[in-house]
Design a protein around this nucleic acid. Structure first.
Lengths: 139, 139
DNA sequence: CTATTTCACTTGATTAGTCAATTGATAGGG
DNA sequence: CCCTATCAATTGACTAATCAAGTGAAATAG
């Protein structure tokens, strides 16, 4: 019951974020990846995949698209590929980041008090961390 | 910050649910659709699309797959198509539903008290309902 | 009674992801 | 010096979704 609520909310708010990011010609998945690169660059694909919770294969395809669009460059660096933003992506993120941040927070601060937001964050953190340790039940 | 937590949790728990439902040869998306059909059958595609928060096109493809696998039947019924479960799907859901329910709840009740779960549900409900009314900010 | 609108559904092109098999390069062991 | 294990990344086959254009049937207007 909680689970369904959370997942319907996530799917709906992803749709809204996609619509919103449209004005920067980005999708939410691309924005997410670019932000992680911005924070941690230079980094390799394996590290990035972990940060955005996607498989190696998934990140490989995503980066191929982002490279084709000129948002990132991949340089074979010893045995891994090191990823960096292009100036084009830096410029877009500089405008998009504060706006997308504000949009995301508005989902919560338009309807919950500061106190309630803290509670929600704390509860979700516990649930999330627990899920990372979780094993599948036996057959 | 809250938003990222929630969406990372959703993506991780979806992955676990997919792994879990593997034993019934279902994905989480298929399970979700089949459950909505089970609860509301017979219904048409537009109604179903709304219930699972997917577009018309999305539900059309999903049902095509489910029909090919023999889980549902679509009967042209006047101008709409009415959807029903096959006995095969009924049988699978009878086993899968309680197990998947328990698995989903375990994400929360292994780590939160009854009281905390109520709080989380109430907060998420408010946030979700608010998001449904939400408009995009002006450009 | 045809002509247009409307509604339900489908489909082509694209994004985003999974898994599993494969490629490519480096590091060591024999 | 070659052979193999290992690690990073890619790729083929697939599921799942979106948007926008297209189809087909029924409803309504002229």
């Amino acid at each position: 019951m909680i689970w369904v609520r959370i997942s319907r909310f996530t799917s709906h708010s992803n749709q809204l974020s996609n619509e919103f990011l449209n004005r920067f010609e980005l999708t939410i998945a691309q924005f997410d990846v670019l932000m992680q690169v911005r924070i941690h660059q230079p980094l390799n694909q394996t590290e990035l995949a972990e940060k955005v919770t996607v498989t190696q294969g998934g990140i490989s395809r995503m980066l191929a698209r982002l490279e084709k669009e000129g948002y990132i460059v991949r340089k074979q660096d010893w045995k891994t590929k090191s990823i960096r933003l292009t100036p084009k992506a830096e410029a877009i993120l500089e405008r998009a980041f504060p706006e997308q941040s504000a949009f995301q927070s508005s989902f919560f601060d338009e309807v919950l008090s500061e106190e309630e937001q803290k509670t929600l964050y704390a509860l979700m953190t516990r649930v999330h961390k627990h899920s990372l340790r979780k094993e599948l039940p036996p057959e």
